[in-house]
Amino acid sequence: MSEYLISARGLTKKFGDFTAVNSIDFDVSKGESFGLLGPNGAGKSTVMRMIGATSQRNAGDLTILGKDPELNGPQIRAHLGVVPQQDSLDMHLSVSENLYIYGRYFGLPRKFVKGKIEELLTFAQLEEKRDAKVEALSGGMKRRLTIARALVSEPEILMLDEPTTGLDPQARHILWDRLFRLKEQGVTLVITTHFMDEAEQLCDRLIVMDKGSIMAEGSPASLIKDYSTKEVLEVRFGSDRNQEVADKLRAMCERIEELPDRVLMYTEDGEALLEKIYASGLHPKTSLVRRSSLEDVFLRLTGRTLIE
């Protein structure tokens, strides 16, 4: 068995003429928290489904725990906990019944599953909702239940497809906290997201995907270091004037990005740059200095923003 839990070489998936995943290579090590960052339609979910042995590749190699998902689907799925993008909870059952029956689907004995339920309810902070119908839960609770459900089989790899999309900030932070705990327990996480803050918070290492290809790979910090500057100055001159001043601004720093509503200026020292702008006689309506993020990396790599 190779040293990697998941290993892909030339992994390709086509739907008719459309190439959803275009010959990508990556490896995921044990205990690692691995991210796939990219906009909607980048091919992240397709990669997740191929790893999850619910979608067959068209070309390339894919090995999960030393096995080929095309030949050993059930055995691979037994190792995985899957949290899909859209909830697939059983609406006809209560919270604890959902956990129970999901364990049974893996063929686990009744006694074993019943023993797991308490632990999982505590983990998901749903002890008081154990007898509630799934429909009555909030979005954040449903997500936590889905994660708890995925853990019932004690998986080594937890696959999370856009885990916090559609949740409010508080619910997201609760969820992140739960995922950190899993990571501490040694569970390998594979996460897709189009939120850069999520990728920065949760991932040790990630690949940036766009249109089915990998644009870059590395830790969040190294990606920012390699593809962006230390700081970013965001200035707004009003949507009609942004373009007018762009040329002047471009001359003042390493690189700029013109967005419809603002101009991003890449620099090692944002405050100094802002002073320079004022000194040149320009007066932005608003300005903001911030640290570079993965959003900037993505913009640099693709010329587009993550959320469009």
Partner: peptide
């Protein structure tokens, strides 16, 4: 080895194993 994995491994080589895992009672 997690129990779920041991259960799945025990089915290797059974007829139609990729489509059927003997879970009708659970359903």
């Amino acid at each position: 080895i997690p129990m779920a994995v041991a259960i799945a491994e025990a089915r290797v080589g059974k007829r139609g194993e990729r489509y059927y895992s003997g879970r009708v009672p659970q359903l």
